[in-house]
Amino acid sequence: MLVRKRHPTAADLGLTAEEARLLRPLSTPWRIQEFLVGLSANFEDQGDTLRSVRGVLRHRRAHCIEAAFTAACALWLHGEPPLLMDLVAKGDSDHVIALFRRNGCWGAISKSNHVWLRWRDPVYRNLRELAMSYFHEYANDDRRKTLRTHSDAVDLRQFDIEDWVTNEDDCWDVGAALDDAPHHRLITPAQTRTLMPRDDMEMRADDLVQYESADRKRARRY
Rank of each mutant, 00 (worst) to 15 (best):
A219L: 03
Q33V: 12
E80K: 13
V123S: 09
E162W: 09
K111V: 00
S93W: 12
R204K: 08
M203F: 13
S213N: 15
R157S: 02
D121M: 01
I109L: 06
S213D: 15
W119F: 14
R118W: 12
A11T: 11
Y222N: 13
V3E: 05
E212N: 01
N103D: 14
D92E: 10
D94V: 04
I97C: 14
P82F: 06
I109S: 07
G47R: 02
M201P: 13
D92H: 13
Y222S: 11
E162H: 11
E129Y: 08
V174H: 02
H95W: 13
E19A: 05
E137M: 07
N167H: 04
T9A: 07
H63F: 07
R143G: 09
V56Q: 04
I187Q: 04
H150D: 04
G107D: 01
L130V: 00
R144L: 05
L26N: 13
A153I: 05
P29M: 07
C73K: 04
P122N: 00
L87I: 03
D86A: 04
D141K: 02
A153G: 08
L208A: 12
A98K: 11
A74F: 11
G47K: 02
R31P: 11
P122C: 02
K111R: 14
A205P: 06
D215R: 10
W172A: 00
A68Y: 13
A72Y: 05
A139G: 10
L2V: 05
R60P: 14
H183S: 10
R125I: 02
E44S: 14
D152S: 15
K5G: 11
S133M: 11
Q210D: 08
L23Y: 15
P25M: 03
L39G: 05
R120F: 13
M203D: 09
P189H: 11
L117F: 13
E162F: 01
D155K: 03
D179S: 12
E18I: 01
A153C: 12
R220M: 14
G38C: 05
G107I: 00
S110G: 04
I187E: 00
R101G: 06
F100Y: 14
E168C: 03
P25H: 11
A181G: 02
R60C: 10
R185G: 07
D163E: 07
L87F: 02
L127A: 08
L57I: 02
F159N: 07
A181T: 01
D169N: 12
L75N: 14
A214M: 12
N167I: 00
L130H: 05
C64P: 14
P25T: 03
L13T: 01
L23W: 15
V96G: 14
S151K: 15
P25L: 06
A176D: 11
P81Q: 00
A108Y: 10
N126G: 11
A41T: 00
H95L: 11
E80C: 04
G91S: 06
R21W: 04
R220C: 04
M196P: 09
L156A: 07
E19Q: 15
D215M: 04
R128M: 03
E202C: 13
V37L: 15
M1F: 09
D12V: 01
P182R: 13
T192V: 08
K111Q: 08
Y134M: 01
L117Y: 12
